[in-house]
Design a protein around this nucleic acid. Structure first.
Lengths: 104, 104
DNA sequence: GAATCATATAAGTGTATGCTTATATATCCT
DNA sequence: AGGATATATAAGCATACACTTATATGATTC
């Protein structure tokens, strides 16, 4: 739940790839494993780390476990970054465009 | 320069603390060391990691080296995060307030 | 109830990380 | 030039990390 956990979780390329796939929609562990040349326990361990960092959430469905993004992690990332908004890119326009999208 | 380097750099509490101090204004390595119960080489190594991740920039001034935040790092963080704007906190108001501040 | 499937946990291993002390390099001062 | 100051680099060490194989747990299916 700490910032350190959050950044550490995202510091691994495999975990960022897993996270990115989950952004497209929830998925169980077996489906997530596809495309990674890695053992099942390895993925399971990565998922545990993402989960305890607050980046993903899980839901048991029978013998499957569905994983989805937990917005809390992104929110905390966002919060950390907002401290440094003085250094954010000058493309405020882009941010404005984004806001417009969110309003719709 | 990679995302992995970026997240790894920020995954260490000392480095985040250094970064945070630099957000208040540029500082040389000796000044930065104050408040950290750590050897000079340790801080120097942390600075090298932050630098190669693109998070800080350095400028030699005689025998001193001035460090300051490099906006590129924050920009790349921001860019990474923007991929997941669908999961951003709903407090759009806060973001709007921020934008207003930036406009002024 | 036994075999199978989905996932997690345990234990072990090589490599990376964050420190340390010792030393090098470069600048400033007298 | 010689000593002090500011910083970086080298080498070494203990701990953390990302894997592996083997095994456990629990849900399904036959």
């Amino acid at each position: 739940m700490s910032d350190t956990e959050l950044f550490k979780a995202l510091a691994d390329p495999t975990r960022r790839a897993v996270f990115e796939r989950l952004a497209d929609g929830e998925m169980n562990a077996t489906a997530l494993r596809q495309g990674f040349a890695m053992s099942q326990p390895a993925i399971s361990q990565h998922l545990a780390i993402l989960r305890s960092a607050g980046l993903i959430a899980e839901q048991k469905l029978g013998r499957n476990v569905m994983y989805r993004i937990n917005p809390d992690g992104i929110a905390r990332m966002h919060q950390w970054l907002s401290r440094y908004h003085a250094f954010w890119p000058k493309r405020v326009d882009e941010l404005k465009r984004l806001l417009k999208e969110m309003d719709q």
